[in-house]
């Protein structure tokens, strides 16, 4: 029982400290113009790390989605509705969630490792002694890069997923829905509001991944083996928060 209480206490403390780190990073956004070079560098880094895998992942997720649903819909003769179903699934759920998971795995782990190593090798202390605020110098540029990169990447994943879905629907003889029909049904079913849901989720997930990874990295103490543990911790925590927040956001947007 006391162990459970300690775990809950640690979790709440982590959430509180993470929220404070987020507020501090928001405060330091006032220094964004003079840190533009760092923000752009992180933006390119995020894109380089995720874009190729995101393309592959989205293409096949869209394809599998079309394959699974299309063949069932065909049994009832309503395969023409596949454009809307794949579209809604990609835009409202799979796009933002898969993008966030990918970001956590590729970018979040790199952030936690980099900041963790900086902490272990006294670089964060060196920043403080140079009177350079680590949140301004390290967290804020990554947060702003994440805020721009995640929705953009999410939209890209949505589009590629739809391309994959349309392609499989057209070429699979069991489904046999042309790209034009797929597009028409998609336009009929998916509304602008669905796209904004996707963006909202992506923005929240982007913040969660960057702040969680920065927080875990900055909390790393001890030797080099702790850096590895921090990477795992950052990814696992980001995944958990993405799943929980995904439900809460979906519920509140209904």
């Amino acid at each position: 029982m006391s162990r459970l209480r300690q775990t809950a206490q640690r979790l709440l403390q982590g959430l509180g400290e993470g929220a404070i780190l987020f507020l501090q990073a928001l405060y330091w956004c006032k220094a964004a113009p003079r840190n533009l070079d760092k923000i752009v560098a992180h933006l390119l880094e995020f894109g380089n790390a995720t874009l190729p895998i995101a393309s592959l992942m989205a293409l096949f997720i869209g394809g599998v989605l079309a394959l699974q649903t299309g063949s069932r819909l065909a049994q009832f003769g309503i395969q023409n509705t596949i454009g809307g179903i794949v579209g809604l699934s990609m835009i409202k759920e799979l796009g933002p969630v898969m993008t966030a998971l990918l970001l956590a795995g590729r970018v979040g782990s790199a952030i936690a490792a980099e900041l963790g190593a900086m902490n272990v090798y006294e670089e964060i202390d060196a920043l403080k002694t140079l009177n350079i605020n680590p949140v301004r110098y390290l967290v804020m540029p990554r947060l702003l890069a994440g805020l721009v990169a995640t929705p953009a990447l999410c939209m890209y994943v949505n589009v590629i997923g739809l391309v994959g879905g349309a392609f499989v629907s057209a070429v699979n003889p069991k489904i046999g829905v042309s790209v034009r029909l797929f597009r028409l049904n998609f336009q009929e079913v998916v509304e602008i509001g669905d796209l904004s849901d996707s963006v909202i989720k992506a923005v929240v997930f982007g913040v969660v991944v960057v702040i969680t990874s920065c927080y875990v990295g900055l909390k790393t103490t001890g030797g080099p083996e702790e850096i590895g543990r921090s990477v795992t911790r950052a990814v696992v925590l980001s995944f958990m928060m993405i799943f929980v927040l995904n439900y809460l956001i979906t519920r509140s947007l209904m």
Partner: peptide, 8 residues
């Protein structure tokens, strides 16, 4: 506490 150390 909220915004961290100020920078001169």
């Amino acid at each position: 506490f909220l915004v961290g150390e100020a920078e001169s």
